[in-house]
Structures are given as structure tokens and as C-alpha cells.
Design a binder for these strands. Sequence first.
DNA 1: CTGAAAGCGCTTACAG
DNA 2: CTGAAAGCGCTTACAG
Lengths: 338, 338
Amino acid sequence: MSPTPRRSTILEVAHLAGASKTSVSRYFGEERGRLSPSLQAQIAQAADTLGYQPNLMARGLKGGRSKLIGMLVADIRNPFSVAITHGVEQACRQYGYSLVVCNTDNDPEQERQHLDLLGAYQVEGLVVNASGSPERQLHTFISQGTPIVLLDREVDHVEVEVVGLDNHLAIDMALEHLTEQGYQAVLYVSEAPQQSSPRQKRLSRFSHAAEQHGLNYATSLLATSDSTATLQALSDFLTTQQQHACAVLCGNGNATLTVTRLFQQLSLPLGKVGLMGIDELDWCALVPPGITTLAQPTDAIGKTAVQCLVHRIAPHTSSMPTTLCFAPTLIERGSTQR
Amino acid sequence: MSPTPRRSTILEVAHLAGASKTSVSRYFGEERGRLSPSLQAQIAQAADTLGYQPNLMARGLKGGRSKLIGMLVADIRNPFSVAITHGVEQACRQYGYSLVVCNTDNDPEQERQHLDLLGAYQVEGLVVNASGSPERQLHTFISQGTPIVLLDREVDHVEVEVVGLDNHLAIDMALEHLTEQGYQAVLYVSEAPQQSSPRQKRLSRFSHAAEQHGLNYATSLLATSDSTATLQALSDFLTTQQQHACAVLCGNGNATLTVTRLFQQLSLPLGKVGLMGIDELDWCALVPPGITTLAQPTDAIGKTAVQCLVHRIAPHTSSMPTTLCFAPTLIERGSTQR
DNA sequence: CTGAAAGCGCTTACAG
DNA sequence: CTGAAAGCGCTTACAG
């Protein structure tokens, strides 16, 4: 049996290879080229027999560079967030960073803890999809020289790049589509906008644009765990507007899910009563006759966020992206065909 | 303006507080109680004005404990994996660990790199939902004293706990349900079983159990990017078995998604032709008349995996869980009602 | 091309 | 109750 199992160190490799710590360090660092071929071979061999891996914690300590990027996600179970996270992860890999993802479950307390943690692990940059308003903590990062980029949601008084959807454009595109399809009255269903700037923007733009289009309209906010209020709002709306062609516009994927359930509960004919959602989901094509959506370019959003960060961490490595605000893509299906 | 921005250190706090490094270290460690109230107050104050956070890299270096658990996920975009990951994450928090999640996108090369990385960051334990057969690397971890637990998928020659669904039971429950509902012929659709032990087990159990139940049956493997072969298999099956009541059983969420699309393509009446899937998904209730599923207890699976790990890392902290193999829950819907 | 030595920010015996 | 000092595993001037 082996003795107390533990990872081997640079010193052990050095001894076995008959070389110095310095040379072993060079071998695993950027300066391998400086070593003679024979020394390289000895070290390679020694490292292999010991199963040596450099300790990145130690490297980070000395060099001050953890090669880690941190990410805060408000709700990892939301497929939209997953898609973005996937894009962020790929971009990190590409730039030579590893990503530590922390899910906050929309809980400001968890958010606080995770930010502490990421700071403690010396992340070199931070992608933040905020839950609460972690103003103070974010400022601490910034003042310590750790760059931050905000994803989707703005945070008051934190003046950094915000990468995400062009919310005004999204609402405009949705209303344009609905109008073209002949709908005359639109109900907008959103989750509570509180801390979420995109929800606020979409909501206020909706009223504004619906007015411009000469539509009849109303809005309804989703309660967290109970959709009876929305059910009521929906049937009220349909009653009030019964002489008009009605449609429902959903502010995000969760809203679309809830409203689709309500349509089924009320046996509303999809299309005759229009339905459209922001965020594309796996199943939108599956509920007959298909639900029309506005898809976000999740990969591009994730990659852009990382590019911003990398540009701040090491300005020469990558240029600042030019677009931070992305247009959605209309995916037309039967639910907006009268 | 501040000078070169950087995080403050224990030494700076000590100076400002008029205390020693040792005391500051104790304040932020387990031994705060040993400090006099006045010293505690001075340190707290100094740390606050400097925005000090202990450097966990340094702490990990000295103490040898990173307080990190690593997790390898084969496909983070699969909602089932997300649900499990969420459970793992919660359990880690509960035991005082942080979780580093690495997605391998089912790519053995990425898997290899991520394992190197996790080793380099000195994770204290590893939850592995394998993509390939990283036998050798996993053995390195084990021989270095880093415990591992496998999630869902077994890895050849790696003899550690495997936490996941009771695959035989799942197939048995599915066939029992389908039989009770009067279906006489069942087509089983699975993704390619190659490296995935659950897929293998479900597949072989299916044939065995279908035989036992006296059912007519066939199986079909999904191609990665193209479902025409499955479309063919499905219509062939329905033709061959046309004098029997037919149903399709899907081996996981992806299969259910693909097959549901095919049902729509072929305008098959859900229920009259039965449809049932392993894995519960958001939208299964939404496709009329609802798709019957077998739901996995994702939270329990995630938590159990972590409990195994923690038990190995620090045996006194938690006991070894008794169940590693979980029963699914039948969620009955219209798609299996003739 | 190679190495001895200082030091990164912590923790932990040890001593008082 | 408090602190001086050694050392965790690395990297990086500096020297040769």
C-alpha cells in the first residue's frame, strides 16, 4: 500500500528528476523552451511516474493570477440561464480561463455569500446575473481591480457594461408581429419586475408601444407560486375585449409556461386567441400548433460578456466587443395565426 | 484615487488593528472565541474598513483543505442534469463546501482537461457524471486520497459508489403500467447506449421484461442529429403491429422530445398510440393530453452523492447513506390512456 | 541553460 | 488571551 496518499509536489518531482524546483516550475509554466531537451525529458518522466499536477492554488498565490472567472446566476433551473451559462463557459475555455458558476436561486443572501466566496477564491473577473442589489460588494471588487460585467440585469449605481437583449426592440418586434397578424388587443404577462431591469423595460415599453400601435392592452403580473390572479386577469381581458382579436404576450419563458397552462385550463384555442413569448424553449414547437417566440442569441450574449471581461483583465488579449445589446429572432408558429 | 488596486491582506489588517497576523487569522478561522472581545472588535473594524476577505487559496495551501468539491456533468443543457446539479449544489452548501461545476458536453477530451483542472484546484471530492471512460485519471484521484462518487453512469474498473436511478425497476414499472393500460406491443427508443451504463441497463432490461410480460416489442436507437431512422422504425413498428394496441417507451428526456416530435409529424393520436418517457420535463403536462412519465428524484440523488463524498472526506461529519439506487415516481397522464 | 533564495497570504504548533 | 516563526507549493527576479 502507498503511504498517506496525497498529491506529489514540485520538490518531489525535482528530486526524482535530479533537477531544481525552478526547472520543474519552468517545465510546467510558460518557459519550457528554456530547458534543454534532456532536462525536459527527465522532468517529464519523473512527473509522469509521480502523477504530478501543479497545484494551481499555490501558483495563484505566488503569481496573483487564479485563472478563474466567477459567474453568478440568478436561477440555474431556467433553461435560458443555462443556455447563457453554456456560452459563457465556452468563451472562458477559449480564453484560457476556468469558470466557477454559482447559482443564487434568486436569493440575495445566497448572492452575498457567493460573492464573498468568489472574492476569496481570487477570481480575476466576474459575470453577474444579479438577484438582489449587491451594490456594495460589487464596488469592492471593482475597487480591488476585479472587472465585472452585468448579464441581463442592471444593478443600480454599478456603472459597468450590461450585456443582454435589446428589450425595447424585442417588445417592438412582438407588437409589430401581433399587429400584422391582425390582433387588436394584447395582454402582457410578466413576472414581478422588482429588481429586474429587463422586466421593467419590457413592461414600460409594452404600454408605450401598444399605445402607439393603437392597440387595446392591459398588463398582468405573475404571482410567485399561484396563477389564479393571472387566470382571472386573462379571462377578464378576454371578456372585456371580446369583440376584438385578442393575444397574450409573455415577458419571458416562465410566463410562457404559466400562460400556456392557463390556455389549456380555459380550453382557449391557440391562434384564435394569440400567444407569443419572449425566450425560445424546447417545447414551444411541441404544443400544437406551436408557440411563436422571440429567441435570444444566448451564445453570443455569453461570449460577449466574457470578451468584455477579458478585455479588462488583459486589454491586449482581446478587443472590446462592439455590441452589448442584442436583437432577438422571431420564430413564427401557429399560435399567432388567426 | 487609490493606489494600484488589489485585495488587502491579513498583514494589513493586523497592522491597522494593532494586532498580530495570528490573531487576525484566528478571528476569521475557527478560533474566534479565543480572542478577547476588545481584540475582536478592533479586528472587525480594521477588516471592515479595508474590505478584507481571507484569501482562500492561501488558506487552502497551508491547511491543505480547499473546501471545494468538483463536479463533472456530461451535458449541462439537459434539464435532468440541471436538476441533479441543483441538488448537489444545495447539499454542498449545507456541508460547508463550494461546488465547481464543469460541463464536458459529452466530450472525452474536455472531460480529461476538466479533471486535470479540478485536480489542480485541489478539490477534496469529486462527483462524476462521466462522458467517456476516464479510468486512469479517476484512479489518480483515488490514489491521492480524493474520494469520488459516480452519478448515474458507471465507469469500468472504477469501484466506487454509483448514485442514480434503479434502472431495472424503472423499466419494470413502465411495462407494468403500459400492460395495465392495455397496450400489447411496445417500441423502446433510446439514445445510443455506448458509454452509458443506465442506457445499457434499461435497454437490456426492456427486452427481458417485455418478453416476460408477453408483449410484442422492438427497440430503436436514436441517431445523434437525425431522427429519420427512428421515424422509419416507428412507422414500421406501427404497421407490423397494427392489429395490436401499440405504445412507445422513451429511455430518457431527449428520446421523449424526439419521439413527441415524430408523433406530431405522423399525426399519431397520443393515447391511442401510447407514449411514455423516463424523466419528467416541464412540458410533458403541456402537450395534450399530457405525456406519462417516470420522474427521477433528482434532489435526493444529488444530495446522496454529496453525502457519500462527505462521509469519505470526514467520516464523522455524516453517515454513509443507505440508499444509492432510487425508485422513480409514475406520473400518469393522457398519453397512456387508450 | 540552470539553480538558490525570497516571498505570495495564510495556518498552526509552540511558547509565554 | 496573544504572538513570533516556520512552512504550505509554487514563481520569479537574480546570478552564474
